[in-house]
Design a protein around this nucleic acid. Structure first.
Length: 743
DNA sequence: AGCACGCCGACT
DNA sequence: GTCGGCGTGCTC
């Protein structure tokens, strides 16, 4: 009987791995790094991940517990995947277990392995790719199927396995195995079996697809293309070439390769997923996002982990999926803020994607019409290769004409200027669709009393309660508190309370009055609360059942509305004067994106071009000028100059220490202590300040900004600093965010 | 983070 | 007499 010490990572905030004893019965395979293991931890049983094997422990033997059970049926997670988690844990200053374990499907971590066993069995029986035609192709499909399922075997059984190196060897052997496909006399390419009919690329798209497909080694590429320029088609054709690279023309045997495509939102995946499935009819495509049911998620994750899934489409969480044969990563709309996780492990999926591509020496494509300044700066400096699509892909489609409407000259009624109303009326007459974009849900952001000056403050937050008229409630968007709309003013009894400002509900109400005959649909987080209702709302827009669409940023992204020829932007001005230096970058991207919803199919039948009308009180603001000219380059250049002069990212690296407590002083005192507890040459530690929204749900919050020109220097400081902070005694709750996005 | 233990206030 | 408040201490 042999005895092992397993070093196990657990999902706990404790920054350590835990030692467990494992007694290996004779004839039994040894444990392996990357295996999941059930252990007793404190008073409960939980799933851990073996990150290291040893023969003895530093701990006194009476403190060691026996591990309970190895999850042998699951092929171990690879060393590369563990390295990815370890990097993320290190970079974001979180324990390894907190990075590695929560991303795994719950079924893998369940105490009873029944669901896992079931999923593994189902995976084995997945309908194999079916050949479209008979004879030779059928044979190819069969070979493909064999190849796919074969990838499970070497790790799953691993009878000869001996700890870490063996697993890597297993993968290597597998790769080699597929390279040694049997020879044959036939020389057809076989690729048509896997890649459906694809549109002809225009020359710029072709160059981009070539550059991606021909890239060797770590190659970050920025695919910079205006909305509607056909970036997706470039991804798909490049993906096809990479998947089919080294396809054995004789056997039709597909080499093991996987492609990861990330998109910002779940909303957008069904449409894209359909396109991808149609294009790759005989390849397994899975999607990974938080909206999946547990069973689906387990199945998809396993298909990725075993290499069976060739294309994985997902949201940010998919960047932490196990993908043993990853050959290309695509980040669509790379500038999108939702790639940054905003709670728990605050990682940037885009940054991890670049790291992962570097680790694997593969290309990574960052696609956007309005790249993040970080990415743009990398491209300017030549670190990322820039690929450019200047024209819209649909032959006749041109960029919409953008105009700025001065609200001082053309006073709005019900929030709409007469010019915008006239433009909408024209669309109604022509049977075309209009989209109004207003990034503020609810009826009105505040309810106020004219008589005594009362306003609808949230009792628990430093924020207003928003009037929601259809629901007949006041709602706090920060703590979710809901109150009935008071009949009269709570302080003076005045019956006549006034809604101030305008949200989507109020605009919807106004539209009904102006255009009684029009079919108006509102799409925002409130109208799409129920599962599937967002999808059905978008479907009805696509079917032409809607004349006027009013919505928040939900409507700005990705959707391809064929009959939409007018976009109206209401009240974007607040972002112009925000204290967040990223606000204008975000507003510009948002305006370009929503503008891109118009005229994707080309000019209307009568040849009328599409229009984007922006209502503003600052018609001469340079940001709007840049949007009007569709001038990302110029605007980005200006912003980068400003950032360089102000010593802001991407020319500076930042981290944010946040603290919260029932009383602000406790949070501030902690930050004050933190600021002075360690020598920090070369690092700027700013003054602790209360957050703009000081109180949320009766908790007061403050923060401390740390800056450094050198990323490694910042990293090494943070590492030492966190160690000291963890030992500090405080009543404040605190957390660190590396590379914060909103400050 | 869980999940315990532990010592003080209002209820059947 | 008990239910339960959250302070503090530990987890291989």
């Amino acid at each position: 009987m042999e005895q092992w010490i397993l070093k196990v990572a657990l999902d706990t905030p404790l920054h350590t791995v835990f030692d467990y004893r494992w007694r290996q019965a004779s004839g039994e395979a040894p444990p392996e790094i990357g295996q999941l293991v059930m252990v007793s931890f404190g008073r409960r049983d939980t799933m851990g991940l073996i990150v290291e094997l040893a023969t003895h422990s530093e701990l006194p033997p009476d403190k060691l517990k026996d591990a309970l059970e190895l999850r042998r049926q699951l092929p171990p997670l690879s060393r590369q995947w563990l390295d990815l988690c370890a990097f993320a844990a290190d970079y974001y200053q979180r324990p390894l277990g907190e990075v590695a374990l929560p991303g795994l499907p719950k079924n893998l971590r369940a105490i009873k392995p029944t669901a896992l066993d079931k999923a593994l069995k189902a995976l084995d029986k997945t309908p194999k790719p079916v050949a479209v035609r008979k004879t030779r192709k059928k044979a190819k499909a069969a070979v493909l199927a064999d190849n796919a399922s074969a990838s499970v075997a070497p790790c799953a059984e691993s009878p000869e396995a001996m700890a870490a190196p063996v697993h890597a060897a297993g993968l290597a052997a597998e790769a080699e195995d597929s390279a040694h496909a049997p020879d044959s006399t036939e020389h057809a390419s076989g690729s048509e079996l896997y890649f459906g009919v694809a549109p002809q690329l225009n020359p710029a798209q072709q160059d981009a697809a070539d550059a991606i497909a021909e890239a060797r080694g770590f190659t970050p590429l920025l695919l910079y293309g205006v909305t509607g320029s056909g970036k997706t088609e470039v991804y798909l054709q490049a993906a096809a070439r990479i998947l089919l690279r080294d396809l054995d023309p004789a056997s039709g045997k597909l080499p093991p390769a996987q492609i990861l495509i990330l998109v910002p939102e779940i909303n957008l995946t069904p449409q894209l997923e359909g396109n991808i499935r149609a294009r790759f009819p005989n390849l397994e495509v899975v999607s990974l996002h938080s909206g999946l049911a547990e069973g689906e998620r387990t199945r998809g994750w396993l298909a990725a982990h075993t290499g069976q899934a060739r294309i994985v489409l997902g949201t940010r969480l998919a960047i932490l999926a196990s993908l043993p044969h990853l050959k290309l990563i695509v980040i669509d709309e790379e500038h999108d803020p939702s790639y940054k996780q905003q709670e728990g492990l605050r990682y940037s999926a885009r940054d991890l994607a670049v790291w992962r591509a570097h680790q694997l020496s593969i290309p990574v494509v960052l696609g956007s019409a309005t790249p993040s300044l970080e990415t743009w700066q990398h491209a300017q400096a030549g670190r990322y290769r820039r690929l450019e699509l200047r024209q819209r892909a649909a032959a006749q489609a041109v960029l919409p004409k953008v105009r700025v409407l001065d609200m001082e000259r053309d006073k709005p009624n019900d929030g709409l200027t007469s010019t915008l109303v006239a433009a909408m009326r024209k669309r109604l007459e022509r049977g075309e669709q209009s989209l109004l974009f207003l990034n503020r849900r609810g009826y009105a952001p505040v309810l106020a009393c004219d008589a005594c000056g009362w306003i609808s403050n949230c009792p628990r937050c430093t924020a207003f309660m928003v009037l929601h008229k259809p629901e007949r409630r006041l709602r706090c968007h920060h703590c979710s508190l809901e109150l009935y709309i008071p009949k009269g003013c709570p302080t003076c009894g005045n019956i006549d309370l006034q809604p101030l400002g305008r949200g989507t509900q109020r605009v919807e109400e106004g539209l009904a009055a102006i255009f009684p005959e029009a079919r108006v649909l509102r799409i925002d987080a409130d109208s799409t609360r129920l599962k599937g209702s967002a999808q059905s709302a978008f479907d009805s827009v696509h079917r032409g059942e809607v004349d006027i669409l009013i919505g928040t940023q939900m409507v700005a992204k990705g959707h391809d509305f064929k009959r939409l020829t007018l976009v109206g932007v209401l009240n974007p001005d607040t972002a112009l004067f925000s204290h967040d230096y990223r606000a204008s970058e975000r507003l510009f991207a948002q305006l370009m994106q929503v503008a891109g919803r118009a005229g994707r199919a080309g000019p209307s039948e009568e040849g009328n071009p599409s229009e984007v009308l922006i209502q503003t009180r600052y018609p001469h603001h340079p940001l709007y000028g840049a949007v009007t000219r569709h001038d990302y380059d110029g605007f980005a250049g200006t912003l980068l100059d400003e950032r360089r002069q102000a010593f802001l990212p991407p020319f500076m690296y930042q981290a944010l220490l946040r603290a919260e407590a029932r009383e602000l002083d406790i949070a501030l005192a902690f930050l004050q202590d933190a600021a002075h507890c360690l020598e920090h040459g070369g690092i700027t530690i700013n003054e602790p300040i209360p957050m703009t929204m000081t109180r949320v749900a009766n908790v007061e919050r403050a923060q401390l900004l740390i800056e450094c020109e050198s990323r490694p220097a910042l990293q090494s400081f943070l590492k030492d600093w966190m160690q000291i902070l963890r030992q500090m005694k405080t009543r404040a709750r605190w957390s660190l965010e590396v590379d914060p996005v909103d400050i």
